[in-house]
């Protein structure tokens, strides 16, 4: 049994939130730099030039890459041999979000009563917390500031098994097509296939934690990802929707067993500000 004070969880989440919002991942930056050479559209290249410059300024000035610092999505994998001490784990996570977003001058974008008052909670809590119990005595925490523009263009479909693979392809490409300039392309399409209604959405979200350019270890899924990426880029939407060859930075597919009656598919759209940072305690 290993004891971990929840104050350490709070501290880690506050730091991860700021780090994610200020410092663009090396994988995304490398994508922008390669895209600057590859994109045929002049307006598209200008977008990449601005995004590279933006990343430099944000890092240097310790300020958010994007003003939409999102809802704070937190993945927390706790080893089953860990005993959390010093208070409530969930409260500690929210306290981490509160501190990170306040001390880091990040925008507070959470409102209560979505169809009524829509009053800002003032500190960006509550976090969207996904916990999982895993073997061991470590705690892995990932913070994903998830912006609203791309999230709004995400979609889920309960497809029929008889519709097969082609229906999945058509659905994903249609979601990306409709997302267009609204989702701040070049975007990432995180695709979940299988599971139940809520599991498939979780899979789509979880897939966004992968590195841009990473190859799916399952050949059947890697092939699907490549096909989807090519079809999405053929849409011509381009960087920021101004027209161009590069509409997606990547497509990630995660799957799970499904019910005999079902073939759920979820597409979680991520803008180019693909922010996620992790730490292991």
């Amino acid at each position: 049994m290993r004891e971990i004070d929840v104050a350490d969880v709070t501290r880690a989440i506050a730091e991860l939130a700021m780090d994610a919002c200020y410092n663009l991942g090396d994988d995304v930056l490398a994508f922008f730099e390669a895209a600057l050479e590859r994109e045929e559209s002049e307006a598209g290249r200008d977008v990449f030039r601005q995004l590279i410059q933006n990343a430099e300024i944000a890092r240097r000035e310790a300020m958010p890459l994007c003003q939409d610092t999102g809802l704070a999505v937190v993945f927390l994998e706790a080893g089953q041999d860990v005993h959390f001490t010093g208070g409530s784990l969930e409260e500690a996570v929210d306290e981490g979000v509160r501190r990170g977003y306040t001390e880091g001058y990040l925008r507070k974008s959470a409102v209560v009563a979505p169809f009524a008052e829509r009053t800002n909670t003032g500190d960006n809590t509550p976090a969207i917390l996904h916990t999982r119990i895993v073997p061991g005595d470590r705690v892995k925490i990932t913070v994903v500031p998830k912006g609203g523009g791309a999230e709004n263009m995400s979609a889920l479909a309960m497809l029929k098994p008889a519709q097969g693979r082609q229906a999945i392809v058509d659905f994903v490409v249609d979601v990306v097509s409709k997302a267009g300039p609204n989702a701040c392309p070049p975007m990432v399409a995180g695709v979940g296939i299988g599971g139940s209604f809520e599991r498939v959405a979780f899979l789509a979200k979880k897939s966004l934690l992968r590195q841009i350019g990473s190859v799916n270890p399952v050949p059947r899924l890697a092939e699907l990802e490549d096909e989807l990426e090519a079809l999405c880029n053929d849409l011509g939407i381009g960087p920021q929707g101004l027209g161009g060859r590069i509409t997606v930075m990547d497509v990630f597919v995660e799957e799970a067993p499904a019910h005999i009656a079902g073939m759920p598919v979820a597409v979680n759209i991520q803008c180019h500000s693909a922010r996620h940072k992790e730490v292991t305690l």
Partner: peptide, 9 residues
């Protein structure tokens, strides 16, 4: 249109 996400710039 302004470039979405180029907010530090």
């Amino acid at each position: 249109a302004a470039v979405g996400g180029a907010a530090a710039l």
